[in-house]
Design a protein around this nucleic acid. Structure first.
Lengths: 234, 234
DNA sequence: CGCAAGTTTGACTGACTTCAACTTAAGTGG
DNA sequence: CCACTTAAGTTGAAGTCAGTCAAACTTGCG
């Protein structure tokens, strides 16, 4: 008999990582995997809040629509990230796969029961939520105070870091090929900019030799220090 | 003998609200009150993370300085709100009193011990952190996508709501006098705008009869529906 | 190869910023 | 109690960054 969740690529890094074998066995009974095609949504703002999940693979976004119709992405979800908001009745944001993605879904009620019985689960989630709050607040500073170029640099650096953590490969490896999980439109939605501005700013970074692009989604960071400087600049 | 924390104005609404008498007694031994003058800081970004606290009275801000020197306020703290980030080594933001304020401070280590022993405390903090994350994400949408007027309207509505919860008085009571806890400069720091723009936008709202001002910090909402409409507009 | 979606580029516009002068509010000491 | 002082807020003119609208160009898939 194979060990529970043995084939789970995020077994150690996900919320479940802290569980002992018995708890993990029960957890695995509650969870079921689901694949999402790029563009497919897991839930929509206003839905009944019925699920929690772990991201197994791919990248997803958390987004809201303004009444006037344009989108703002408020967070990106990478493998091992947790999805969901226990204890809430309704869902606050759309969750949509940016790339092909796979998630391990738990119904909310049994997940909450697991949390009550395994305090380390709750503790883990608290720590993650606190980090996520911190990430979100740092991004507030970008949207509130930084220029288009600084925002873009910040996003590229963030993606690089998260992709490095996720797959293999070092953070800010010079010249390494990154597959962007977002289209220009999606980048614009994260950055609070328009697609045209994003395109122009990418052009400028290319012209300056800071990055190189390869097709639509391929990107290489050629001058990490310069990119960081742009991110930190006003 | 008087009951523990009996005179605490936020006894029921704060994180401590869920504790039983025994736990509250211990908690009260750990906490000590501190008054802050307007403008005084409780901690600075980068400090060792040594404290957690409950806000007893007044309004405080969470803020960061960009490398280029201007401030972005990433959150406002009202009575009963929790301050601090358990489990982290350093502090992520400055915390500064906007008005005269009072807080109930706990050293971080014993606070974490209390959390370990009283799971409802951890659970409460998790729920609060999840809400705070949600608030922060909603604000992301404002900074990313909304015009100066919509942001200002959003801030006024938020302040009104929080002040109403905090003191007495109904939410969005027409014509009721609100004492703004922020100066124009501080509003600008929250909104990601300049002080001049804030001033001009307030002027426009006054001209439109949506609000009235009284001195520097007094404000009345005359047309709540109109204000909400402006907030929701692009 | 051809098409459609995605992206880039250009010209123009506008919202917010910047810089600067001026006004008001609120506290202080004579 | 009022002139004085100073910080806070308002107003105006000019500049700029990013948005809008529109057209051309890629890219990758069928």
């Amino acid at each position: 008999m194979t060990k529970v969740c043995e084939d789970c690529v995020v077994r150690d890094r996900s919320l479940c990582g802290t569980l002992d074998d018995a708890a993990l066995t029960e957890m695995s009974r509650l969870g079921r995997r689901r694949k999402l095609a790029a563009g497919e949504s897991l839930q929509f703002e206003g839905d009944d809040n019925i699920l929690c999940a772990n991201v197994l693979g791919g990248v997803l976004k958390l987004s809201s629509l303004t009444p006037s119709g344009d989108a703002q992405t408020v967070g990106l979800l990478y493998p091992a990230d947790f999805i969901g908001r226990p204890y809430a009745d309704t869902v606050d944001h759309d969750i949509t796969a940016l790339t092909e993605a796979e998630v391990c879904i738990f119904a909310r009620a049994p997940f909450e029961r697991m949390m009550a019985e395994n305090i380390q689960l709750e503790r883990q989630l608290l720590e993650r939520t606190l980090s996520e709050l911190e990430r979100s607040r740092r991004w507030l500073l970008f949207l509130g105070r930084k220029s288009a170029s600084a925002r873009l640099a910040g996003l590229i650096i963030d993606i690089d870091r998260r992709m490095a953590q996720t797959g293999c490969g070092a953070d800010l490896g010079i010249g390494q090929l990154i597959q962007l999980p977002l289209t220009r439109t999606e980048m614009a939605d994260v950055l609070g900019l328009t697609i045209e501005t994003v395109s122009r700013e990418i052009g400028k970074l290319k012209d300056a030799g800071v990055i190189a692009t390869e097709g639509r989604r391929g990107l290489r960071i050629l001058k990490p220090a310069a990119l960081k400087a742009i991110m930190d600049s006003e």
